[in-house]
Simulated assay, not measured.
Amino acid sequence: MDSTQNYNPEQLTATAFKVREHIIRMSTDGGCFIGASLSAVDLIVYLYNNFLNITADNLDDENRDYLFLSKGHDVPALYGTLAELGILETERLQNHLSINDHIYWHPNTKIPGIEFHSGSLGHLPSVAIGVAMDIKLRGGNNKVICILGDGELNEGTCWEAMLVANAYKLDNLIFVVDRNQFQANIRTEELIPLEPLADKFAAFGAAVKRIDGHNFDALHEAFSAYPFHPGKPNVVIADTMRGKGLPSIQERADRWFCNFSGDEIDQLLLELHGNHTTQLTSETLIVR
């Protein structure tokens, strides 16, 4: 899909809201990594709807684009997005963690739309580089996205991958960092500080943009500028909020993985709906 066409922030907001509903419903009967999944929703929804050429009809087309979810524990956000795109049957989301399906805590290639399995962090940047190099060798125009967690950047393989991406001038590759400031149950800057993160990526040869990862206009402006610099791998650092959409768990270190009861799920859905209505009202007032 051409990122300059069909941009509709209101529709993206509505889709992101539905994806957040899916995530909340998957955080019971075994639970999921709800905080990080909620932080990545807007990124993934934007990419699939306004940047990547990936549809239910072209999954086997070698000319499609690719998205690799390296921070695999965010997969509920990806499952929900694939469901809203019609790539994954929505009713299958009810099978999360069921022994009768393949929908569980990390991506599985048996699910349509999943390009590569992940779970152990730090591995998919190298996989994405291999695909990007193959595309270059074939003379293709496919775009390759790899979504990384900020805590994942403690893995040395991520930085080794950046060196290789720069050496081979992979300007068809975009690393997107979901910068929600948390690694598991501690803030990144309290464990192994990452900042100044943009400067570090630039020092490794990347063309870097830093944006608000929950602002669709900012996302659209950034990705519409792709490729950011000829011959350089692209990096988007998206500043996000863990638990976005649920004030009761936002930015809470103890809410990185949750297994809620049915009653708690109902309350969280009510909270999501209430917060969504408040946001829409505030935006309307600002516009007026």
Score class of each variant (00 low, 15 high):
I129K: 01
G149E: 08
A222D: 10
A198F: 09
G156Y: 06
I211A: 05
I174T: 11
P196R: 02
D199C: 00
E251M: 12
N154S: 11
I192S: 10
L191W: 12
K143V: 04
N185Q: 15
P193G: 15
I147V: 14
D171S: 05
G156D: 04
L191N: 11
R179V: 08
P230N: 09
L197P: 03
K136S: 06
R187Y: 13
D171Q: 03
L163V: 05
Q181D: 12
I186N: 10
E155M: 10
H214A: 11
K169Y: 07
W159I: 07
F182C: 11
D171N: 07
P227Y: 00
K244P: 05
A165K: 07
I147S: 03
D171I: 00
A206Y: 11
A203T: 12
E195P: 04
N154D: 15
L173D: 04
H229T: 15
I192A: 09
A198M: 06
H229W: 07
A167G: 08
I249W: 03
Q181R: 13
K136R: 13
F204K: 02
C158K: 01
R252Q: 14
D239I: 07
L170M: 06
D212W: 03
P193C: 09
D150I: 06
W159F: 07
Y226H: 10
L219Y: 04
L148C: 13
A161E: 09
F182P: 10
V235N: 01
R138M: 14
N141R: 12
I174L: 12
L153C: 05
I174Q: 03
L148G: 07
F216R: 07
H220C: 04
R252E: 10
N185M: 14
L191C: 10
V236C: 03
I129T: 11
L173S: 05
T188E: 13
A167M: 11
I249V: 12
K143I: 03
G140C: 09
A184L: 15
A161W: 09
N185Y: 14
T157G: 00
D199Q: 12
G231T: 10
N185L: 05
C146M: 02
I129C: 11
C146V: 13
M162N: 06
N142S: 15
A132C: 01
K169E: 15
T188Y: 04
I147Y: 08
V208M: 03
L194T: 10
N215M: 07
K232V: 00
N166G: 12
P227F: 01
G139K: 02
N154V: 07
R187T: 13
P233F: 00
R179A: 09
S248G: 12
G149Q: 04
A198P: 05
L191G: 04
N234G: 08
D212N: 15
I192E: 12
